[in-house]
């Protein structure tokens, strides 16, 4: 394809990224570095600030059960409540990723079963890329950037909950060093979604053709946007290998928690995605 077409594709994907993803990298980095006119995020670093943070966001994402309102109950139930809210936000994010995928030219013309397969295998990888800009070595933004939760607090939760976010921090810190911007990210997310090697695909050729065009667009975008960053295109693509391992470990952990946590129920959409995944 002509480079003008590749630039138009980059602009289109960037626009739909802005349309469907509420917290961009630019905004997240501004919040994290304090360079924004908005209020600084509320910091959750212990049980007391967690309760205050929950009240601040009106408990929408972290519902308290009436019979567990004692302080002792809060201590015991914090992990379950936190991951209930994590699941609700994940389900919303999957819906956003789906809309973004549908906006990739040619995606909705693929076999519907293949669209399902691409999303099933792609969404968690995409979500890990999307949370990277929200993270730094000390913690992560949550709740659309209103709250900053410290890494130490997440590590202080009981097992296995404390093991959930740490691998994402390790990945994100390295991924953020590539310094991709939101337009680079939009193209990379489309490349991930259009992976022709997902298990069970019925018609691989049209998917690979679409991915090839987006890959060309990403390569050109990185050359223009990062002229001094050598081999950036190759470095970005290498992240896809790390992502697959990260998702495999994540799904194993969730499935283990489903067995061991009696009070834990998995959101139906996450169940659909994780069933028979790897």
């Amino acid at each position: 394809p002509e480079s003008a077409d590749l630039r138009a594709l980059a602009r289109h994907l960037y626009e739909s990224y802005l349309k469907y993803f509420p917290l961009t990298k630019a905004k997240a980095r501004a919040i994290l570095s304090g360079k924004t006119s908005d209020n600084a995020p509320f910091v959750i670093h212990d049980m007391k600030s967690l309760v205050e943070g929950e009240q601040m966001i009106n408990c929408r994402y972290m519902p308290l059960h009436e019979h567990r309102r004692s302080d002792l109950g809060i201590m015991h139930e914090v992990e379950l409540r936190f991951f209930h809210s994590y699941q609700s936000r994940s389900a919303e994010a999957i819906s956003e990723v789906t809309e973004f995928a549908k906006s990739i030219p040619g995606f909705i013309n693929l076999d519907l079963n293949d669209q399902v397969t691409l999303l099933k295998y792609g969404v968690i990888e995409v979500m890990i890329i999307m949370i990277s800009p929200l993270m730094n070595k000390d913690g992560t933004l949550i709740s659309y950037g209103q709250i900053f939760m410290t890494r130490e607090f997440l590590k202080s939760l009981r097992k296995p909950f404390c093991e959930m976010m740490e691998p994402k921090f390790e990945f994100s810190i390295k991924f953020n060093m590539l310094e991709l911007d939101d337009c680079d990210m939009a193209l990379f997310l489309a490349v991930i979604i259009l992976s022709g090697d997902r298990p069970g695909l019925l018609d691989v050729k049209p998917i690979e053709d679409l991915q090839e065009t987006v890959l060309h667009s990403l390569e050109l975008q990185l050359k223009i946007n990062h002229p001094d960053s050598l081999q950036l295109f190759a470095k970005v693509l290498q992240k896809m290998t790390d992502l697959r391992q990260l998702v495999t470990d994540h799904v194993q952990l969730i499935q283990m928690m489903k067995e061991t946590e009696a009070d834990w129920s998995l959101h139906p959409l996450l169940q659909e995605i994780m069933r028979d995944l790897y």
């Binding site: 609700s88 956003e96 519907l112 399902v116 999303l119 959101h267 959409l269």
Partner: peptide, 20 residues
């Protein structure tokens, strides 16, 4: 298809993200 009911619904919904 039954196994991925919600994903199918999300894909076939023509407007904005559906309420989950």
């Amino acid at each position: 298809k039954e196994k991925h009911k919600i994903l199918h619904r999300l894909l076939q919904n023509s407007s904005s993200p559906v309420d989950l």
